[in-house]
Design a protein around this nucleic acid. Sequence first.
DNA 1: TCTCGACATGTCAACAGTGGAAGGTAGAGT
DNA 2: ACTCTACCTTCCACTGTTGACATGTCGAGA
Lengths: 178, 178
Amino acid sequence: MSLRHALLGLLSDRRASGYDLLKTFETSLANVWPATQSQIYTELTKLAGSGLIAVAAEGPRGRKEYEITGEGMAELRHWLTEVTPQRTLRSDVLLRVFFLGVLTPEQAHAYLTDLMEMSRSGYEQLRQLHDSVDWDDGNLSVHGRIALEYGLRFNAMRREWAEWAAQQLTQPRGRQGW
Amino acid sequence: MSLRHALLGLLSDRRASGYDLLKTFETSLANVWPATQSQIYTELTKLAGSGLIAVAAEGPRGRKEYEITGEGMAELRHWLTEVTPQRTLRSDVLLRVFFLGVLTPEQAHAYLTDLMEMSRSGYEQLRQLHDSVDWDDGNLSVHGRIALEYGLRFNAMRREWAEWAAQQLTQPRGRQGW
DNA sequence: TCTCGACATGTCAACAGTGGAAGGTAGAGT
DNA sequence: ACTCTACCTTCCACTGTTGACATGTCGAGA
């Protein structure tokens, strides 16, 4: 249940409505913690209910601007420092690798080739995002840039790995002491 | 809903009971697609209900050995070749990076240091797993080894990135054209 | 004036995942 | 004979996630 913390984090930077937050998720946070509209609104209501955020202002079209409360900031800091992150990496992509044996060598190879392409295009997209974003020197900007760098390195790593893996499959078996 | 495909994949290699599969998940698949006991048994019942797997034999203690059916193999192949994998990387770890600004520089730095250590120990654990596993030349073995290599590279990448990120935070801002 | 796209929120059913409780059996070792 | 461990399955309540549906308003431009 990190969504609540994602919302707290965004609200710690500036006040925002559900709609604003939704947009932010779509653009910057989508790669790290995707969330749907319904989830965001539901969670905001819950957060407000437990006093971690509060409605700061109401605008046109029923717009409700939320702001983080002191209690919310405390919870956010607690999550950042005390709660040890759990690595629950569920990888659709990697899971398939285990079972490439049921395919023909050609098909297995094709899968890895697709992965290379996926990584390459993922890399490119992030690079474009990097170029298009207005990197002011705000906190979110600094750390967003660091997160983006992670994405770049991740894609580069995965591409190289897929190339290596494709080689492994084509090479004859036997002991080769890799 | 990749759990069903994980189960199909394992059953494509050999017949197994829920208990067997549970053990396999705990050891080899846990890093890629964790699953709990209740989830596995539930899914097996569903899979049997839709004819993708079937009970091949019943053993002592109510043991039911499942085997994959032709229909199940077709579904597995279909998933491997036709269904484009979706990258839903929800990363607890990376999400926090966005919000390191709410902490003191020392705390933020400490978080990255913890990440380095986490990556280092993750790397070590995988290396030990690599050394302890009996790598026969079965298909699962070959591909399991490839998946493991991914884990090694991933941890190495993350460690380097965390080191780089820590540097970014300590360095004075300003334009440096990275 | 009208219309359309962006703004804005809420709700619901269905499924996926977590954690734990409950209940029982076979077999190995004392 | 007894006990303990590993084996083995089922069920349930709760939370998280998805996708779709419902509902309406403001403001810019034809």
